[in-house]
Write a protein that binds this DNA or RNA. Structure first.
Lengths: 213, 213
DNA sequence: ACTTGTCCTGTCATGCCGTCAGCTTACAGC
DNA sequence: GCTGTAAGCTGACGGCATGACAGGACAAGT
């Protein structure tokens, strides 16, 4: 699908070129997690990678372009989140374990990619379609199978559109908790209680029942 | 409380100075809602205000400093959100109306200030304490009275800490919906259904019961 | 050794950042 | 009206980031 990796001016990148390119992406990633997005400069990334700004511009149109690259890579990676829901049981105690593992996995994924996800979230909020699409891909990797679970476990009274809405709300809540965990602790939620609380919310949303003790 | 407005180098600002300062803030606000945060430049703000970059630096240390100013102003303004909850009844149909009006008011506030709130949210996520504090002030203007409502309307079994947690989760959901409304519509939630759905969630969270039809 | 195509950097023009000295304006005291 | 003082603003400057280009370094094949 992707064809070959190409430079900005259309040349195909060879082995050495791809290494340099990757190194730049890695350094940018590192940079994003240590500096505010607004302060990330091409020259700093290039320096960190032991190369020159000109080299950076051979492979990426600008910082945003390179960020999109990283974000797309992460979005691919987010496909693995599906396995946290797909084919899992939501019955009784097993169901609550499913919920706990989902919360755990989701938060872990977010924490691992928090720097890049911050930028993606900002871009999406600013109305950039490319970032929006990437964000939806990540959220949908959980929301889609979760909606399916809701459909299978909720009563038959609700319409199909409700299931997606419930799943969306739950995923939004998880994302908010992952991105602003500190807000919850300042609301009196102890760090160790955050995951159980979220797991409870998810279980309630999917099954509509209180979990077994 | 605030004392006088001062320039960066310590002079007190007079009438004309305050006007210029305010004009710069207004233009920055405008700028933020039309350009990505990363691309907002001092020189553009100054040009738009019909002044020079040097003047900008007389009143603000940098773009971030000016943004903080706007954000603090907005945080003050957010105090009005309290009235959406304080002294309202959560009983029966009236209760659901309370919930609807809360959702409506919150979303309206967020929409009105969405540009600055995006930046505040980013800053908070990046770990900046000043932005975090401002964000908490906005969220708490709803979360605090909402927690009180939860305590008054939920059963007596739950501990006090739970009420804050529930209120926090609800407010987080509202913020997510306000900031990423498009995500919900792409999950099949029609624009006109978003507010009723949120109102339902809030009502459920506060009272623990389904609303009367 | 020579050729070819990839890869990187030195250099340059441009433009923004952030600071300073110094000019203008407002105003209070006389 | 004159003058001193502080407020208000800007031109100009060194410094740095951006983005483009030409040309040198390098690897691989002939």
């Amino acid at each position: 699908m992707t064809g070959q990796v190409r430079t900005v001016d259309g040349r195909v990148a060879g082995r050495r070129g791809q290494e340099t390119r990757q190194k730049l992406l890695d350094c940018l990633r590192e940079m994003l997690s240590t500096s505010p997005y607004r302060d990330v400069k091409v020259i700093d990334v290039a320096r960190m990678a032991g190369t020159s700004p000109a080299t950076f511009y051979q492979y990426f149109p600008d910082v945003e372009g390179a960020v999109l690259e990283i974000a797309e890579e992460m979005a691919e990676d987010s496909g693995g989140l599906k396995e946290l829901v797909d084919g899992k049981s939501w019955a009784g105690k097993t169901g609550f374990t499913t919920s706990e593992e989902l919360v755990d996995g989701f938060l872990a994924f977010w924490r691992k990619n928090d720097a890049i996800l911050r930028v993606v979230t900002l871009g999406a909020a600013e109305g950039d379609k490319r970032f929006f699409k990437i964000r939806m891909k990540v959220l949908n990797s959980v929301a889609a199978p979760l909606a399916e679970a809701v459909r299978n476990n909720q009563g038959k009274t609700d319409k199909t559109v409700e299931a997606s809405a419930v799943a969306g709300a739950l995923v939004s809540l998880l994302a908010a908790a992952a991105e602003h965990g500190k807000a919850f602790t300042s609301w009196g939620v102890k760090v160790k209680d955050l995951k159980p609380n979220l797991a409870l919310q998810v279980y309630l949303g999917v099954t509509g029942k209180k979990p077994p003790k």
